[in-house]
Computed example of a mutant assay.
Amino acid sequence: MRSRTNLAAAYREADRIDEAVSLGKQVVADSERYLGDLHPETWRARSDLAASYLKAEQTAEAVALLEQVASDAQHLLGDDHVDTWHARAALSAAYRAAGSIKEALTLGERVAADSGSLLGDYHPDTWRARSSLAASYLKAGRHADAINGLKQVGIRSEQLLGDLHPYTLRSRAALALALQEVGQAEEASKLEEQVLAAMAQTHGDRHASTLRACYDLLAPYGEAGRAGEGMTLLERFTADSERLLSDYARTREGHDVVSHSRR
């Protein structure tokens, strides 16, 4: 069953959502039949299916599954078990995706508070929990709480992972968005500039992540009265991407010609 769970996850990562959901349902049904409702593999299968439901925007189905997993983990393992903590963290994120912000905040604050004692302040899952809570704060319009939380996550990430680590860059991008929402366009622009420079350094100008960072910079530039600079950057990176796609198309065309000639 574990191999099929892994395959369903691979389908989900490849955006083959219908296949991920279909296979996930089969795995859950088989797990419940052969292992029972309270077996850890059944919980894992339900959580994985919930992740596929979320990607398919079937949030009600995801929430129902994760509520069941969290309840079972609490009753069987207790409040202070790390698996119960993980189940609650996933459920809080699902509540937010479903628009149940009050529930997301209530559970998210509990998860973030428990993360220090269960995992430690420097554990990556602690940072993820606090980032998730910040996202819920943003949804609830509590921008100051969100910004403070994201700043703390960013500091921890830089200290342990470095300036160029993907998690550090994601934290900066999230903080930039929060700052932009409260009208701090210059501060948001500076953070997005850091993200863009790091992406270009790590991946090169032509990488999709670099282009995405360039697009993310346009909005704060516009709000800061720097729209011209944003368009110049966009033209540069778009031109690079178009050249890359053109090169790929020519390579692919040549490959197809060779393939057909061999038939």
Rank of each mutant, 00 (worst) to 15 (best):
A198C: 00
T59K: 13
H165K: 04
D18C: 01
L196Q: 01
A97D: 14
K151M: 10
T59S: 15
L191Q: 04
A56Y: 10
A89T: 02
Q152D: 10
A97N: 10
L65W: 03
H255I: 07
Y221T: 08
L91G: 03
L77D: 04
Q194R: 11
R172I: 04
G183H: 10
T59M: 08
E253K: 15
E192M: 14
A104T: 07
D240H: 08
R128A: 10
L76A: 13
R12K: 15
K190L: 13
S209G: 02
D121Q: 06
L76Y: 12
Q68E: 07
R250L: 12
A113F: 06
A29V: 06
L76C: 11
N148M: 07
K25R: 15
T251A: 14
A70W: 13
E41Y: 15
G78E: 03
Y11C: 07
A8I: 09
Y215W: 10
N6M: 13
T232S: 13
C214V: 05
R263M: 05
A113S: 10
L66N: 05
H203M: 08
L118T: 07
T168V: 02
G36A: 04
G78P: 01
Q26I: 04
T59H: 15
H143F: 13
P124D: 05
L77I: 05
A197Q: 03
R226A: 09
V28R: 05
V63K: 03
V111A: 02
I101Y: 06
T251S: 14
E67I: 02
K25H: 15
G225S: 10
A29E: 15
G225A: 01
M231T: 11
E193D: 11
P166S: 07
D30T: 12
A90V: 00
H86K: 12
Q201K: 01
V21Q: 06
Y137D: 00
M231H: 05
A8L: 08
S52H: 11
S259M: 06
R243C: 12
L245G: 08
R236T: 08
A56W: 09
G183E: 01
R206L: 04
I101L: 10
G116I: 13
K151A: 03
L65I: 00
A50I: 03
G183D: 10
V63N: 02
A176F: 02
D163I: 03
A219W: 12
L54D: 11
S246Y: 13
H260F: 09
A93W: 06
T84C: 08
L138H: 12
T238I: 11
E242L: 15
R46W: 06
D15N: 14
V63M: 02
E19H: 06
I147S: 07
P166K: 07
